[in-house]
Design a protein around this nucleic acid. Structure first.
Lengths: 316, 316
DNA sequence: CTGAAAGCGCTTACAG
DNA sequence: CTGAAAGCGCTTACAG
């Protein structure tokens, strides 16, 4: 039996007789044969691997479980297809250059990018090299890039609506960074739902870190001591907000209701347990992988929006 | 100029005349040439990549920043040598099999393993395939495996000594899982330093999760209401311990002093800020990478122990 | 020090 | 449907 026939079996078994197919499969089982991936990549020009590129500042990565959850989910979704995930850190300028060079050299077939900031130079470089990319969250300021996002606006609106239904009248918000899609869209949802209740003094800005949630909440309390609810744009910042409220002698939820966003494990562990908006992070990562592989296979990019879900706990 | 000469320049420039070397380097710069890694791997039989294998239960990975810190540090140490890090998740039985097959097939040259449990079947399989492996923490029940660890025993002793110096007389401990080197050795350090103060009723067991720290502390308080200090074997569990103490109306540090282990960002963020034992996680990951690359290059394994450092804050 | 040649293990048209 | 052949882009003895 020729090498060519074996290769055909390995690559989809087209134009192979049933008897040859069976014989090859049996031989593969018996010998535990595994194709040499380097030889295959050399001729196909495909690496059959994908990079997961981390661009977030160090502290956030360790504080906020969101990133680890997506990383792990992506690794698992890829493993099911026997595609390795290569982790790259592109925090500094030099790391970014190294990452672009590495990717452009064809070491990986595509890139998974998490929470891209507006005008990200890394994304710009990657696109100019025509590297298949899928981001999580709509990349601000880029067109024709594939992405997967949660329904940020819908989720934020649902939370504000819930706070209103709970009888809260003075609802503030702590935003995420406004150069990220999540930060921007959660604020947009808040604005839309607040409508004529809206007042700019009810808005304070954070950067997704716990400490920023605490600081922004303290600002709000100083400016508007009359607030009776806060929608905080991430669970981690909400943890900071709860701390700030305690420091100012406000009870949660009696004096001030607090709602978060994400529903990572932290939300249920807070005191009191946090009402929040659940993002389907696992599913986002899985869809991101699926979409990237399609694009690598030559399909056009797409934008996928997945539903969020309000999870009511004791904090509201 | 022949391909052979260029190849010699790329691989260390032995037996190359200065003029040829200069010419090749200039051509590389001018054209931005990058060697095709698949072709190179095909002939050398080396993948020039390394796997980072995650075996921890999901929840711990997201709760405890220790793992992300080591993952990121390892990725950065490898990136400096232009070696990609392949992330593999080996939580389930099937994932473990897939990982072993993948690694044994030569897709990566070696494996970085974090916090191996006693008798780990993954480590057993990897060693039986003669895959170069370096673990973080001494792997319990295995010989001749390279590893890098913090001085767990010394760190635990320093903490107990500190609590004694602070005038505490009834010092309890919450341990980590005793089938991990960290869990076992931190308890050993506690035992050694307690000497004749030791009483088994002062020991409660956790599993490194926050909730287990809370539960174990509640147990201790029920059994020994007279304790005035607790050495908790990780910062995350210490956070749970502080919660339990508050729930039982004990003030930290006035009534009960609390000491942790790790010194991840969480320690300084706790209320009150946590006295803890700093593990040099960055350095551990860097040394782990260095050692693995040496072993891949044919050197014998080694065991490296790095010093820990007591960091005193307000909780003691 | 340098060039020519073989070979790493696959895939893919191309005949048959 | 199947086999023989070329070729992917390198590295590495081997002559010279």
């Amino acid at each position: 039996m020729s090498r060519g026939t074996v290769s055909r079996v390995l690559n989809g078994a087209r134009y192979v007789s049933p008897s040859a197919l069976a014989a090859v499969n049996e031989a593969i089982r018996a010998t535990g044969y595994q194709a040499n991936s380097h030889a295959r990549s050399l001729v196909t020009g495909r690496s059959n691997s994908v990079a997961f590129v981390l661009t977030e500042p160090q502290h956030l990565l360790f504080e906020d479980p969101t990133f680890s959850i997506m990383l792990r989910a992506a690794a698992q979704a890829l493993a099911q297809r026997d595609i390795p995930l290569v982790l790259m850190v592109a925090g500094s300028e030099e790391e970014r250059r190294r990452t672009t060079t590495y990717v452009a050299a064809g070491h990986v077939d595509g890139v998974l990018l998490v929470s891209t900031h507006a005008g990200s130079p890394l994304l710009r470089d990657l696109l100019s090299e025509h590297v298949p990319v899928v981001t999580s969250g709509a990349p601000l300021g880029f067109d024709a890039v594939g992405y997967v996002e949660a329904d940020e606006i819908g989720g934020a609106r649902a939370m504000v609506r819930h706070l209103v239904e709970r009888g809260r009248s003075t609802i503030a918000t702590v935003t995420g960074p406004l150069d990220t899609p999540g930060g921007l869209k959660r604020l947009e949802g808040y604005r839309l739902e607040m409508a004529d209740r809206l007042d700019e003094s009810l808005i304070a800005h954070g950067d997704y870190s716990r400490e920023s949630g605490r600081r922004a909440t303290a600002e709000l309390l100083a400016r508007r001591p009359d607030i009776d609810a806060i929608f905080v744009a991430s669970d981690l910042m909400a943890a900071g907000a709860v701390t700030a409220l305690a420091e100012h002698g406000r009870r949660v939820p009696e004096d001030v209701a607090v709602g978060g966003f994400d529903d990572t494990g932290m939300a249920a562990a807070l005191h009191p347990p946090l009402t929040t908006v659940r993002q389907p992070l696992d599913r986002i990562a899985r869809e991101q992988v699926r979409l990237l592989l399609e694009i690598i296979d030559g399909q056009e990019p797409a934008a996928i929006t997945l539903p969020t879900q309000l999870v009511v706990r004791a904090s509201t």
